[in-house]
Amino acid sequence: MTNTAQNDILLEVKNLKMHFPITKGIVIQRTVGAVKAVDGLNFFIRRGETLGLVGESGCGKSTTGRSILQLYKPTAGQVIFKGEELTKMKRGHLRAMRRQMQIIFQDPYASLNPRMTVGAIIGEPLEIHHLAAGKEKRERVQQLLRQVGLNPYFVNRYPHEFSGGQRQRIGVARALAVNPEFIVCDEPISALDVSIQAQIINLLEELQGEYSLTYLFIAHDLSVVRHISDRVAVMYLGKIVELANRDELYENPQHPYTQALLSAVPIPDPVVEERRQRIILQGDVPSPVNPPKGCNFVTRCPRAMDICHEKEPPFRDMGGDHYTACWLYE
Protein backbone atom coordinates (compact mmCIF):
# COMPACT_ATOMS: atom_id res chain seq x y z
CA MET A 1 0.00 0.00 0.00
CA THR A 2 1.37 3.41 -0.88
CA ASN A 3 1.57 6.31 1.56
CA THR A 4 -1.19 8.30 -0.06
CA ALA A 5 -3.52 5.32 0.14
CA GLN A 6 -2.70 4.95 3.82
CA ASN A 7 -3.67 8.55 4.47
CA ASP A 8 -7.04 7.70 3.03
CA ILE A 9 -7.66 5.08 5.67
CA LEU A 10 -9.68 6.30 8.63
CA LEU A 11 -10.05 3.05 10.49
CA GLU A 12 -8.17 -0.19 10.41
CA VAL A 13 -9.01 -3.40 12.24
CA LYS A 14 -6.35 -6.07 12.68
CA ASN A 15 -7.04 -9.60 13.91
CA LEU A 16 -9.93 -8.30 16.05
CA LYS A 17 -11.37 -10.89 18.44
CA MET A 18 -14.18 -10.56 20.92
CA HIS A 19 -14.83 -13.68 22.96
CA PHE A 20 -17.46 -13.52 25.70
CA PRO A 21 -16.57 -15.85 28.56
CA ILE A 22 -19.19 -18.38 29.69
CA THR A 23 -18.98 -18.76 33.45
CA LYS A 24 -20.37 -21.28 35.90
CA GLY A 25 -20.78 -21.11 39.67
CA ILE A 26 -22.27 -18.41 41.84
CA VAL A 27 -19.65 -17.75 44.52
CA ILE A 28 -16.55 -18.77 42.67
CA GLN A 29 -17.01 -18.18 38.97
CA ARG A 30 -15.13 -20.44 36.64
CA THR A 31 -14.81 -19.81 32.94
CA VAL A 32 -16.04 -22.92 31.16
CA GLY A 33 -15.93 -21.72 27.59
CA ALA A 34 -16.36 -18.71 25.35
CA VAL A 35 -18.78 -17.33 22.78
CA LYS A 36 -16.47 -16.53 19.88
CA ALA A 37 -18.68 -13.71 18.67
CA VAL A 38 -15.93 -12.04 16.64
CA ASP A 39 -12.99 -14.21 15.77
CA GLY A 40 -10.16 -12.53 13.90
CA LEU A 41 -11.30 -9.73 11.61
CA ASN A 42 -9.06 -7.76 9.26
CA PHE A 43 -10.36 -4.82 7.27
CA PHE A 44 -10.09 -1.08 6.84
CA ILE A 45 -12.49 1.74 6.08
CA ARG A 46 -11.51 4.67 3.89
CA ARG A 47 -12.32 8.22 4.81
CA GLY A 48 -15.76 9.22 3.52
CA GLU A 49 -16.83 5.77 2.40
CA THR A 50 -19.55 3.44 3.60
CA LEU A 51 -18.53 -0.10 4.41
CA GLY A 52 -21.55 -2.40 4.55
CA LEU A 53 -21.39 -5.31 6.99
CA VAL A 54 -23.89 -8.09 6.30
CA GLY A 55 -24.58 -11.53 7.66
CA GLU A 56 -27.23 -13.53 9.44
CA SER A 57 -28.46 -13.07 12.97
CA GLY A 58 -25.81 -13.82 15.56
CA CYS A 59 -22.83 -13.77 13.19
CA GLY A 60 -21.19 -10.96 15.16
CA LYS A 61 -22.07 -7.74 13.33
CA SER A 62 -23.12 -5.70 16.36
CA THR A 63 -20.24 -7.06 18.41
CA THR A 64 -17.87 -5.91 15.68
CA GLY A 65 -19.32 -2.39 15.75
CA ARG A 66 -19.19 -2.21 19.53
CA SER A 67 -15.67 -3.57 19.77
CA ILE A 68 -14.48 -0.96 17.29
CA LEU A 69 -15.96 1.80 19.43
CA GLN A 70 -14.42 0.18 22.54
CA LEU A 71 -17.85 -0.30 24.08
CA TYR A 72 -16.48 -3.80 24.64
CA LYS A 73 -12.87 -4.44 25.49
CA PRO A 74 -11.67 -6.68 22.64
CA THR A 75 -10.10 -10.03 23.56
CA ALA A 76 -7.34 -9.55 21.00
CA GLY A 77 -6.30 -7.47 18.03
CA GLN A 78 -5.98 -3.82 17.20
CA VAL A 79 -8.36 -1.03 16.23
CA ILE A 80 -6.49 1.86 14.65
CA PHE A 81 -8.48 5.06 14.22
CA LYS A 82 -6.72 7.98 12.51
CA GLY A 83 -3.39 6.33 13.19
CA GLU A 84 -3.98 5.75 16.89
CA GLU A 85 -4.45 2.35 18.50
CA LEU A 86 -7.60 2.35 20.62
CA THR A 87 -7.52 -0.99 22.43
CA LYS A 88 -4.72 0.01 24.81
CA MET A 89 -5.52 3.69 25.10
CA LYS A 90 -5.92 5.39 28.51
CA ARG A 91 -9.44 6.39 29.50
CA GLY A 92 -9.19 10.16 29.21
CA HIS A 93 -7.60 9.98 25.80
CA LEU A 94 -10.12 7.39 24.67
CA ARG A 95 -12.98 9.65 25.67
CA ALA A 96 -11.65 12.41 23.45
CA MET A 97 -11.37 9.91 20.59
CA ARG A 98 -14.90 8.68 21.21
CA ARG A 99 -16.28 12.08 20.35
CA GLN A 100 -15.24 11.38 16.79
CA MET A 101 -16.95 7.99 16.69
CA GLN A 102 -20.68 7.59 17.25
CA ILE A 103 -23.29 4.86 16.95
CA ILE A 104 -26.92 4.71 15.80
CA PHE A 105 -28.81 1.73 17.20
CA GLN A 106 -31.27 -0.68 15.64
CA ASP A 107 -34.16 -0.22 17.96
CA PRO A 108 -35.49 3.34 18.00
CA TYR A 109 -37.81 2.37 20.88
CA ALA A 110 -35.25 0.98 23.29
CA SER A 111 -32.31 3.24 22.53
CA LEU A 112 -33.77 6.55 23.74
CA ASN A 113 -34.27 7.24 27.45
CA PRO A 114 -38.07 7.53 27.87
CA ARG A 115 -37.77 10.00 30.77
CA MET A 116 -35.64 12.52 28.92
CA THR A 117 -36.96 15.19 26.57
CA VAL A 118 -35.74 15.18 23.01
CA GLY A 119 -33.73 18.31 23.79
CA ALA A 120 -31.99 16.60 26.70
CA ILE A 121 -31.31 13.46 24.68
CA ILE A 122 -29.68 15.33 21.82
CA GLY A 123 -27.92 17.81 24.12
CA GLU A 124 -26.43 15.18 26.43
CA PRO A 125 -23.36 14.36 24.32
CA LEU A 126 -22.69 18.11 23.98
CA GLU A 127 -22.47 18.31 27.77
CA ILE A 128 -20.47 15.14 28.23
CA HIS A 129 -17.83 16.44 25.86
CA HIS A 130 -18.09 20.05 27.13
CA LEU A 131 -18.91 21.32 23.67
CA ALA A 132 -21.79 23.65 24.39
CA ALA A 133 -24.01 24.79 27.24
CA GLY A 134 -26.94 27.13 27.87
CA LYS A 135 -28.26 29.10 24.96
CA GLU A 136 -25.58 27.83 22.63
CA LYS A 137 -26.56 24.25 23.38
CA ARG A 138 -30.25 24.98 22.86
CA GLU A 139 -29.54 26.54 19.48
CA ARG A 140 -27.35 23.63 18.45
CA VAL A 141 -30.08 21.14 19.41
CA GLN A 142 -32.65 23.03 17.35
CA GLN A 143 -30.28 23.16 14.41
CA LEU A 144 -29.72 19.39 14.69
CA LEU A 145 -33.46 18.74 14.76
CA ARG A 146 -33.85 20.75 11.57
CA GLN A 147 -30.98 18.85 9.94
CA VAL A 148 -32.66 15.51 10.50
CA GLY A 149 -36.00 16.76 9.24
CA LEU A 150 -37.77 17.30 12.56
CA ASN A 151 -39.53 20.39 13.78
CA PRO A 152 -37.27 22.38 16.18
CA TYR A 153 -40.31 23.02 18.38
CA PHE A 154 -40.19 19.35 19.38
CA VAL A 155 -37.37 19.91 21.92
CA ASN A 156 -39.59 19.56 24.97
CA ARG A 157 -41.39 16.42 23.87
CA TYR A 158 -40.68 12.87 25.04
CA PRO A 159 -39.72 9.87 22.84
CA HIS A 160 -43.11 8.16 23.20
CA GLU A 161 -44.72 11.08 21.39
CA PHE A 162 -42.86 10.16 18.20
CA SER A 163 -43.22 7.45 15.56
CA GLY A 164 -40.47 4.88 14.93
CA GLY A 165 -39.06 6.81 11.99
CA GLN A 166 -39.06 10.05 13.96
CA ARG A 167 -37.31 8.37 16.89
CA GLN A 168 -34.66 7.07 14.57
CA ARG A 169 -34.16 10.66 13.37
CA ILE A 170 -33.67 11.68 16.99
CA GLY A 171 -31.02 8.96 17.33
CA VAL A 172 -29.30 10.31 14.22
CA ALA A 173 -29.40 13.88 15.59
CA ARG A 174 -27.85 12.70 18.86
CA ALA A 175 -25.04 10.93 17.01
CA LEU A 176 -24.39 14.02 14.88
CA ALA A 177 -24.36 16.42 17.83
CA VAL A 178 -20.64 16.11 18.52
CA ASN A 179 -19.58 16.44 14.85
CA PRO A 180 -18.22 12.90 14.55
CA GLU A 181 -16.19 11.69 11.60
CA PHE A 182 -17.21 8.08 11.89
CA ILE A 183 -20.63 6.55 12.64
CA VAL A 184 -21.49 2.92 13.21
CA CYS A 185 -25.03 2.50 11.91
CA ASP A 186 -26.22 -0.74 13.56
CA GLU A 187 -29.31 -1.82 11.59
CA PRO A 188 -30.72 1.72 11.67
CA ILE A 189 -33.76 0.85 9.56
CA SER A 190 -34.60 -2.75 10.44
CA ALA A 191 -37.31 -1.83 12.92
CA LEU A 192 -39.01 0.62 10.56
CA ASP A 193 -41.81 0.15 8.07
CA VAL A 194 -40.90 -0.19 4.42
CA SER A 195 -42.44 3.15 3.53
CA ILE A 196 -40.33 4.88 6.23
CA GLN A 197 -37.02 3.09 5.62
CA ALA A 198 -36.28 5.09 2.47
CA GLN A 199 -36.69 8.34 4.41
CA ILE A 200 -33.90 7.36 6.84
CA ILE A 201 -31.62 5.96 4.11
CA ASN A 202 -31.89 9.22 2.20
CA LEU A 203 -31.21 11.22 5.36
CA LEU A 204 -28.05 9.21 6.12
CA GLU A 205 -26.87 9.69 2.54
CA GLU A 206 -27.50 13.43 2.59
CA LEU A 207 -25.69 13.88 5.89
CA GLN A 208 -22.75 11.87 4.64
CA GLY A 209 -22.43 14.14 1.62
CA GLU A 210 -22.73 17.27 3.71
CA TYR A 211 -20.33 16.37 6.53
CA SER A 212 -18.00 13.87 4.80
CA LEU A 213 -19.02 11.19 7.25
CA THR A 214 -17.60 7.67 7.19
CA TYR A 215 -20.06 4.87 7.93
CA LEU A 216 -19.88 1.28 9.02
CA PHE A 217 -23.37 0.25 7.94
CA ILE A 218 -24.57 -2.95 9.60
CA ALA A 219 -27.62 -4.65 8.12
CA HIS A 220 -29.07 -7.96 7.17
CA ASP A 221 -31.04 -6.54 4.23
CA LEU A 222 -28.75 -7.11 1.28
CA SER A 223 -30.75 -4.86 -1.04
CA VAL A 224 -30.35 -1.88 1.26
CA VAL A 225 -26.65 -2.62 1.73
CA ARG A 226 -26.11 -2.67 -2.02
CA HIS A 227 -27.81 0.68 -2.28
CA ILE A 228 -25.89 2.48 0.45
CA SER A 229 -22.40 0.92 0.54
CA ASP A 230 -19.19 1.55 -1.39
CA ARG A 231 -17.70 -1.73 -0.26
CA VAL A 232 -19.33 -4.70 1.44
CA ALA A 233 -18.04 -7.27 3.94
CA VAL A 234 -19.91 -10.55 4.45
CA MET A 235 -19.69 -12.17 7.89
CA TYR A 236 -20.38 -15.75 8.90
CA LEU A 237 -19.99 -17.10 12.42
CA GLY A 238 -17.57 -14.45 13.67
CA LYS A 239 -15.43 -14.14 10.57
CA ILE A 240 -15.43 -12.12 7.37
CA VAL A 241 -15.71 -14.58 4.50
CA GLU A 242 -15.66 -12.07 1.66
CA LEU A 243 -15.05 -8.36 1.13
CA ALA A 244 -15.21 -6.45 -2.13
CA ASN A 245 -16.43 -3.34 -3.88
CA ARG A 246 -20.19 -3.20 -3.92
CA ASP A 247 -20.96 -4.12 -7.52
CA GLU A 248 -18.13 -6.64 -7.67
CA LEU A 249 -19.49 -8.45 -4.62
CA TYR A 250 -23.06 -8.59 -5.90
CA GLU A 251 -22.18 -9.46 -9.49
CA ASN A 252 -19.20 -11.71 -8.93
CA PRO A 253 -19.47 -13.33 -5.49
CA GLN A 254 -16.70 -15.87 -4.87
CA HIS A 255 -17.42 -17.45 -1.49
CA PRO A 256 -20.08 -20.20 -1.51
CA TYR A 257 -21.74 -18.55 1.47
CA THR A 258 -22.01 -15.18 -0.28
CA GLN A 259 -23.38 -16.95 -3.34
CA ALA A 260 -26.03 -18.73 -1.27
CA LEU A 261 -26.90 -15.62 0.70
CA LEU A 262 -27.39 -13.52 -2.45
CA SER A 263 -29.44 -16.24 -4.11
CA ALA A 264 -31.76 -16.38 -1.09
CA VAL A 265 -32.68 -12.69 -1.19
CA PRO A 266 -36.12 -12.27 -2.73
CA ILE A 267 -36.38 -9.75 -5.55
CA PRO A 268 -39.54 -7.67 -5.90
CA ASP A 269 -40.22 -8.73 -9.46
CA PRO A 270 -42.25 -11.86 -10.23
CA VAL A 271 -40.68 -12.26 -13.68
CA VAL A 272 -37.18 -12.37 -12.18
CA GLU A 273 -38.30 -14.63 -9.34
CA GLU A 274 -39.71 -17.23 -11.74
CA ARG A 275 -36.39 -17.60 -13.49
CA ARG A 276 -34.14 -17.61 -10.45
CA GLN A 277 -32.18 -20.64 -9.37
CA ARG A 278 -31.80 -20.68 -5.62
CA ILE A 279 -29.00 -22.29 -3.69
CA ILE A 280 -30.91 -23.60 -0.68
CA LEU A 281 -28.51 -24.11 2.22
CA GLN A 282 -29.16 -27.09 4.46
CA GLY A 283 -29.30 -26.81 8.21
CA ASP A 284 -28.53 -23.95 10.54
CA VAL A 285 -25.59 -21.83 11.61
CA PRO A 286 -23.48 -23.69 14.23
CA SER A 287 -23.02 -22.25 17.70
CA PRO A 288 -20.20 -19.73 18.13
CA VAL A 289 -19.28 -21.59 21.32
CA ASN A 290 -18.22 -24.65 19.32
CA PRO A 291 -17.42 -23.53 15.79
CA PRO A 292 -16.52 -26.41 13.47
CA LYS A 293 -12.94 -27.41 12.82
CA GLY A 294 -11.46 -26.02 9.63
CA CYS A 295 -13.67 -23.54 7.76
CA ASN A 296 -16.59 -22.17 9.80
CA PHE A 297 -18.95 -22.66 6.84
CA VAL A 298 -18.01 -26.29 6.22
CA THR A 299 -21.14 -27.78 7.84
CA ARG A 300 -23.44 -26.07 5.34
CA CYS A 301 -21.19 -25.61 2.34
CA PRO A 302 -22.42 -27.27 -0.86
CA ARG A 303 -18.83 -27.36 -2.18
CA ALA A 304 -16.91 -28.52 0.89
CA MET A 305 -13.69 -30.47 0.22
CA ASP A 306 -11.50 -32.54 2.55
CA ILE A 307 -9.19 -29.68 3.42
CA CYS A 308 -12.15 -27.53 4.50
CA HIS A 309 -12.71 -29.88 7.43
CA GLU A 310 -9.08 -29.64 8.47
CA LYS A 311 -7.70 -26.13 8.10
CA GLU A 312 -9.08 -22.64 8.25
CA PRO A 313 -8.85 -20.96 4.84
CA PRO A 314 -6.71 -17.79 4.65
CA PHE A 315 -8.32 -14.42 3.84
CA ARG A 316 -6.91 -14.06 0.38
CA ASP A 317 -6.49 -11.08 -1.92
CA MET A 318 -8.14 -12.02 -5.21
CA GLY A 319 -7.03 -8.76 -6.85
CA GLY A 320 -8.99 -5.59 -7.45
CA ASP A 321 -9.75 -4.99 -3.77
CA HIS A 322 -11.61 -8.31 -3.58
CA TYR A 323 -10.85 -10.63 -0.64
CA THR A 324 -12.25 -14.03 0.22
CA ALA A 325 -11.52 -16.85 2.65
CA CYS A 326 -12.16 -20.11 0.78
CA TRP A 327 -10.05 -23.14 -0.14
CA LEU A 328 -11.63 -23.23 -3.62
CA TYR A 329 -9.30 -20.42 -4.61
CA GLU A 330 -6.04 -21.64 -3.09
Binding site: V194, A198, N202, L222, P268
Partner: peptide
Protein backbone atom coordinates in the same frame (compact mmCIF):
# COMPACT_ATOMS: atom_id res chain seq x y z
CA UNK B 1 -39.08 3.22 -2.11
CA UNK B 2 -37.31 -0.14 -1.93
CA UNK B 3 -33.86 -0.74 -3.44
CA UNK B 4 -33.46 -3.84 -5.61
CA UNK B 5 -30.56 -6.14 -4.96
CA UNK B 6 -30.27 -7.18 -8.58
CA UNK B 7 -29.79 -3.66 -9.89
CA UNK B 8 -26.93 -1.21 -9.88
CA UNK B 9 -27.56 1.65 -7.57
CA UNK B 10 -30.37 3.90 -8.67
CA UNK B 11 -29.97 7.58 -7.90
CA UNK B 12 -32.03 8.11 -4.80
CA UNK B 13 -34.85 6.24 -3.19
CA UNK B 14 -38.23 7.92 -3.34
CA UNK B 15 -39.72 7.58 0.11
CA UNK B 16 -43.41 7.94 0.86
CA UNK B 17 -43.43 11.06 3.02
CA UNK B 18 -45.45 11.27 6.21
CA UNK B 19 -46.99 8.54 8.35
Amino acid sequence: SIPRMDMKRSQRLEPIEGL
